[in-house]
Design a protein around this nucleic acid. Structure first.
Lengths: 140, 140
DNA sequence: CTTGACTCTGTAGTTGGGTCCAGGGTTGAC
DNA sequence: GTCAACCCTGGACCCAACTACAGAGTCAAG
């Protein structure tokens, strides 16, 4: 399949395909005699995976790492395992944080349901008064 | 408190403070006779709030929106409520997606615990074979 | 009253993730 | 065999969110 078809099916810009290729995220597809890229059908799924991972907060570097693990066969399974576990723990932490923020916002919305006199509407308070997960200073 | 003290306490670069001020995210603090910025102690909490919201995936524009809601007093409570509810729903959706990815990764790790013969180690499969939440085409 | 640490301003550079464009080649329907 | 629709390349440009820098002013200790 050609560039624009793949781009269309995956919901990305054609330039993005070339960009990913430059980055090494997509391997160079075979070319037609005329020099046109000719992607295999699986490329659609691959791109959707990339996009989904990205929406979930993985950087392209991380996505690349994940994809490379998939290349190595069973031999790289231990490395894959370590990386996956690492990312899993990251995700768990992110989820917890987001959940806290979510709950704070839900509380705020609930406060807004109260009669005017009982409202504080103090967004900063609502969100900020639960200190972060033991991360005092000097983050990185 | 002066620029570098605030920056230190909040864990950001001093330039970031000026950047936020240019963006309108921080209001211009009073100045000392010599022209130095003199931040109130509350600025530390404010910055930490900004950073935390950012870590959780809010853009600076969104953070600004959140902060402006806090200015308006009870009058803007209805607007705040709508925005908060919107963001809350966004967060809930993000959390669901992250949770799916998290579970996929956990499955992958579990697969890696199997004896070699039973492993697939196919990351793409592990992650990709659960189609998204009824989101067939044309995302936005 | 000098010296070194700090701050000011405006402007330019960086990183990540694309996106656009000019100038040219390839296809396929007519 | 022509013409629109597509594709190629290399390079420039864009946005968000910083970060760095030059050149000048401020301040407190000695």
């Amino acid at each position: 399949m050609r560039t624009s078809e793949l781009a269309g099916r995956a919901g990305v810009n054609t330039e993005t395909l070339r960009y990913y290729e430059r980055r090494g995220l997509l391997t160079e597809p075979p070319r037609t005699p005329g020099g046109y890229r000719d992607y295999p059908p699986t490329a659609v799924e691959l791109l959707r995976f990339i996009k989904r991972a990205q929406e979930l907060g993985f950087t392209l570097d991380e996505v690349e790492e994940l994809l490379h693990l998939d290349d190595g066969g069973p031999d790289s399974c231990d490395a894959a395992r370590a990386l996956a576990e690492h990312r899993r723990a990251d995700l768990a932490a992110r989820i917890r944080d987001l959940q806290r923020m979510h709950d704070s916002l839900a509380d705020l919305v609930a406060t807004c349901d109260l009669p005017r006199a009982d409202r504080s509407c103090a967004l900063l308070e609502a969100i900020d008064h639960r200190p972060g997960p033991a991360k005092p200073e000097a983050i990185s």
